[in-house]
């Protein structure tokens, strides 16, 4: 349900149960259900007053012109404007890490970064990790070799987190690496195999 009061509806007849009154009835439980979580998002098309403008982004080493709204998140721009759907939205609220990308080599939740703020920075997504000739990044290769992950919806976020972490900490212990990628959630709970893969990835990166 919408979170804002609609004057016309609130002013309606006493005994009529309006959305506003539903919400009042259940507000104690924090129970506002529904579409509000998508209000900032507008895929494609112009939206009245949304203030879209053209900016240039450096994504995976390419300069990309893209028209964005002021309130648009990087995850949205990547997925819906640039067609880079390897970045996943698991929660859209910085809880799960599925949308993690690198911004100047540092992992960020792209659901919680405004696209406008990454102008002039280097954005790297899972699609930009392999070499131009298709050679996998060492961490990707390690995931293949260890058959890491199960459903893999969390995989790109985990890989980006690990790549960012390993750039700064090339020789972590298993525990240090676990802390380094603990901002990512795997619902298949394949953590053991993920750590196997990422530790192997660290080793491949050191060798490369």
């Amino acid at each position: 349900m919408p979170e804002m009061e609609d004057a016309k509806i609130s002013a309606s007849k006493e005994h009529r149960i309006t959305r506003r009154r539903f919400i009042l009835g259940v507000i104690a439980g924090g129970a506002v259900v529904g579409a509000a979580s998508y209000k900032i998002l507008s895929p494609g098309g112009r939206t009245r007053g949304a203030g879209e403008r053209w900016i240039t982004l450096n994504v995976n080493g390419r300069m990309r012109r893209v028209e964005v709204m002021r309130q648009e998140t990087l995850a949205w721009t990547l997925r819906y404007k640039l067609g880079l759907t390897g970045t996943k939205l698991g929660c859209d609220r910085a809880e799960c890490g599925a949308c993690t990308v690198l911004i100047d080599d540092v992992p960020h939740y792209s659901c919680s970064v405004l696209t406008n703020t990454v102008r002039g920075k280097r954005v790297t997504t899972i699609e930009g990790l392999a070499g131009a000739d298709g050679t996998l990044h060492p961490v990707q290769q390690a995931v293949v070799d260890e058959q890491g992950f199960q459903c893999a919806f969390c995989m790109s976020g985990f890989i980006m987190s690990a790549v960012g972490f390993l750039k700064k900490h090339p020789a972590p212990t298993r525990t240090e690496l676990a802390h380094g990628i603990s901002g990512n959630l795997c619902r298949c709970q394949d953590y053991n195999k993920i750590l196997d893969a990422m530790m192997r990835g660290a080793e491949y990166m050191r060798r490369a």
């Binding site: 259940v26 439980g29 990628i181 603990s182 709970q189 053991n192 750590l195």
Partner: peptide, 26 residues
């Protein structure tokens, strides 16, 4: 909430599956 029948824990942070730090690393 038994009085209103409203769900209180409905997002990951309120009802979180184990993270990598909740289980042994090996």
């Amino acid at each position: 909430d038994p009085e209103y029948g409203a769900t209180v824990a409905k997002r990951f942070y309120q009802n979180k599956p184990p993270t990598i730090l909740d289980v042994p690393v090996d």
